[in-house]
Nucleic acid binder design. Sequence first.
DNA 1: GATTTAGACATTTTT
DNA 2: TGTCTAAATC
Length: 743
Amino acid sequence: MDVSHILDDLNEAQREAVSAPAGSTLVLAGAGSGKTRVLVHRIAWLTGVAGATPWSVLAVTFTNKAAREMRHRIEHLLGQPVGGMWVGTFHGLAHRLLRAHWQEAGLPKAFQILDSDDQHRLIKRLIREMNLDDSKWPPRQAQWFINSQKDEGRRAQHLDDGGDHYQRQMIAIYRAYQEACERSGAVDFAELLLRAHELLRDRTDILHHYRERFAHILVDEFQDTNSIQYAWLRLLSGERNNLFVVGDDDQSIYGWRGAKVENIRHFQRDFPKTAMVRLEQNYRSTANILQASNAVISNNPSRLGKNLWTEDKDGDPVRVYAAFNEVDEARFVIGRISDAIDSGHRRTDVAILYRTSAQSRLFEEALLQAGIPYRVYGGLRFFERAEIKDALAYMRLVSNRDSDPAFERAVNQPPRGIGPRTLDAVRAHARDFGCSMWHAMEELLAGGSMAARAANALKGFVEVIEELQLETTDMQLADLTAQVLNRSRLPEHFKKSRDGKGQDRIENLEELVNAARQFDGISMGSDSIDLPGTEINSSTPGSIESDPIEMSELDAFLSHAALEAGDTQAGEHEESVQLMTLHSAKGLEFPLIFIGGMEEGLFPHSMSSDDPERLEEERRLCYVGMTRAMEQLYLCHAESRRLHGSDSYPMPSRFLREIPPDLVEEIRSRPDVSRPVITPAGGFNMAEETTGFRLGQRVAHPKFGEGVVLNAEGQGSSARVQVNFEAAGAKWLVVAYANLQAV
DNA sequence: GATTTAGACATTTTT
DNA sequence: TGTCTAAATC
């Protein structure tokens, strides 16, 4: 294999990282410094130059998308497929381990994965069953509690309530939840990681096997790892310490979800001989954009320190637009986008970023009005849609009748006359005998003590599932799926709905059959089943793991649906402007970036601005957003914004002040346009005629300093204006007495 | 069992 | 202000 090109087109720091000697390596990779590139070239270097087999390489990412991209780029660079390499997400890899060693992990063979929605429903149900008031004990909070405990590696029995009521109750819910999961053979996302960790921790034979095998472990986005993921990596790396991690502490924006930036610092402590490489040359943005971003992030005290530089030209200044209100903000942004498109930019060159998803609506409306196609990131994904989950629930019952979450979902969907009272009886019986709901239902039916109507309804359901199970044995996955639609009568049910979504739902269900067919096609080709989030090896000679993973097509497909929820919108690859939250922009780049809502309270968000650590994370989020821009960066804030129904007069974000003024071009609200004002008399009027000031105009007050005119009312001597002062906030002033000066 | 209405509530999200 | 959920009602 010709490997000469592996180091050729890399800069010095990248080369140093890629060819680092065996042992632990920490690569601090700034935004746009070629992070993925280094990872991919490192793998190529290991297998091509250092003599490692693809077999011995484990590469871990956070998202399926990142995993796919990495594999793709490795194969492109090496010019051949790399079988045997494990490239996948933490969850995908943990899942694979658990499938291979389900017995040792204490799981049923056909264990199923609960997604967050399943988890939420289950917890909600349990809280009710425990006779707790779910307004006092919100399921969301319990879910958060359970997941954060698992992320820290803690089981319910390890926890101590410390005499605290709240704590005690949460622990009780955690315990009940875990028992319910065991009964149903269900594993949630956090459980995948925790179980996989416990498996390696408690079974030295298995641990040694994988330590032997994975001589090279590489981790992407290391700053996003949580405690259990880091523990898992340490366990697996063993004494060899061949851990190659890439990350950027300045881009850590998922602390709220358990990610520990400290892991980067701990890494150097835990692996004392770590080689550290900084990638500081940026290949993405112009010098002005980069300098502005550097200036903002430098306000964070706890950084490892990095200073990005570029050989690129200065480029345009960062443009800051002070909008009159949120509508004006959207109008301005869309106006600039039209201009950019007219002057030859593609729509896909442009992204609008915002802190909260609710902000997208105004931009969408403005884009719609301007007739510019757009795409919003986020939202429901294919396998998360209600109708899809309904169908999957039937499939889950076919695979495992003890799955209570699936039972609860499918039993009366479509409605077949099984009401809350019947279900309560089934639940009570299941709880009393510690069995699954399916089992409880069978016993109740056999007992004959049930009302005839309820019993018949339940029998109808039993029949559906049993028929399905009988007739789909040895059936192809796609045919099985089609048969599920037939027997469940879900399509007929949605056909009846008159909310306009019925047709969409039916089409989605048909798409599910297609998805199953595609999945079938993939796994038929290989000699083992393709597990989501991982790439399958061919065969391992005589080892623990060479035991083929015994898993039906159906179970593989169900796992795939949970671990890889699919795209937001099917087939939306049209040339369009991209809208997304700042969080989902991480890892992407666009020639033109617009960030809206640069206001105190919104960004940094009010829920994060009291705590210094969370404020730092907000600043990192700002840094992430700014560094997405290649050529032009627009930052917008509004003088007034309607938030939850009432008006607010936010101050411009502190992050704006942190940008050196010489890098900024301020854009004023169009001064030639006066806005109409409604006078108490009832008619329209121009603010300028009645008060002498235009809306949006900057004025100075002897006591309050400078501000912007937001509103005006009244006439003559009673004319008043509302001014948003930078220091004092929004105030109404009588023009005749206020002594305001235009600035 | 479906439809309507009232009430709560409102960061960020992948697996 | 807009959306989502849950009780209330037909």
